[in-house]
Computed example of a mutant assay.
Amino acid sequence: MIRVGVIGTGAMGQNHVRIYSEMEGVKLAGISDVDQNRVEAMAAQFKTKAFTDYKKMFAEGLDAVSVVVPTKLHKQVVLDALEAGLHVLVEKPIADTIENAELMIEAAKKSKKVLMVGHIERFNPAVIRLKEIINSGILGKIVSISTRRVGPYNPRIRDVGVILDIGVHDIDIISYLYGKKIRGVYAIAGADIHSFEDHASIILRMDHNFAGVVETNWLTPHKVRQLTAIGVKGVAYLDYLDQTVELHDNGWIRKAKVEPSEPLKNELAYFIDCVQTGREPNPCGEDGKHALEVAMAAIRSYEEERLIEVGK
Rank of each mutant, 00 (worst) to 15 (best):
A269T: 13
R254A: 15
K55L: 08
P281D: 12
K92D: 05
V214I: 15
A191C: 06
M1H: 12
G212L: 06
L268D: 05
V90H: 04
F46R: 03
V143C: 00
A200P: 02
R279I: 10
I182D: 11
C274N: 04
R183S: 10
V65L: 05
M296L: 15
L238P: 03
F196K: 12
R306E: 13
L177E: 10
K49Y: 06
K289F: 00
D33N: 14
V258M: 10
T277R: 07
K49M: 04
G231W: 07
I157T: 13
T216Q: 03
I308A: 05
R183N: 13
I163A: 06
I157W: 10
L204P: 01
K49E: 12
P152H: 13
G140F: 04
K112P: 03
V235L: 09
R149D: 08
A43M: 05
M42K: 11
A189Y: 01
Q36W: 00
Y237C: 05
V214H: 08
G10W: 08
K255N: 15
E40W: 00
G179A: 07
K56L: 12
K49R: 14
H16N: 08
D242Y: 02
A256T: 02
L86E: 01
F58I: 02
V6D: 03
I253Y: 01
A189C: 05
V213Y: 12
R129I: 07
A236I: 09
R156G: 03
R148M: 03
E102L: 10
S146L: 06
D242E: 15
W218A: 06
G288Q: 10
F123Y: 15
N209R: 11
G190E: 13
R122E: 07
V90N: 08
I142F: 06
E303C: 01
I166R: 10
V65C: 08
L238N: 05
I142K: 02
T71H: 01
W252D: 12
K55N: 11
E305F: 04
T228L: 13
S21E: 07
V26I: 07
G61M: 06
D239K: 06
A295D: 03
S32C: 15
D273C: 00
M12D: 03
P125I: 07
T52K: 04
I138L: 15
E293V: 00
G288T: 09
E262S: 09
V150G: 00
S201I: 12
A269D: 13
I163G: 03
K312G: 04
L130E: 04
N209G: 06
P125S: 08
W252F: 14
E197D: 12
T71W: 00
C274Y: 01
M57T: 02
G140K: 10
L177S: 06
I193Y: 08
H194G: 00
A41T: 13
Q45V: 01
A41F: 00
E303M: 10
R148W: 13
E99Y: 06
A50C: 02
I94H: 08
Q45R: 14
Q276C: 10
H74L: 11
I202D: 12
A11Y: 11
V143Q: 12
A291V: 04
I173L: 13
R156A: 15
R183F: 05
K92H: 07
L79Q: 04
G137P: 09
I94N: 05
M57E: 08
H194T: 11
M23I: 10
P281V: 07
G151Q: 09
G118P: 03
P221S: 11
V77F: 07
V78G: 02
V224E: 15
R279T: 10
A64R: 07
V90T: 14
L292S: 02
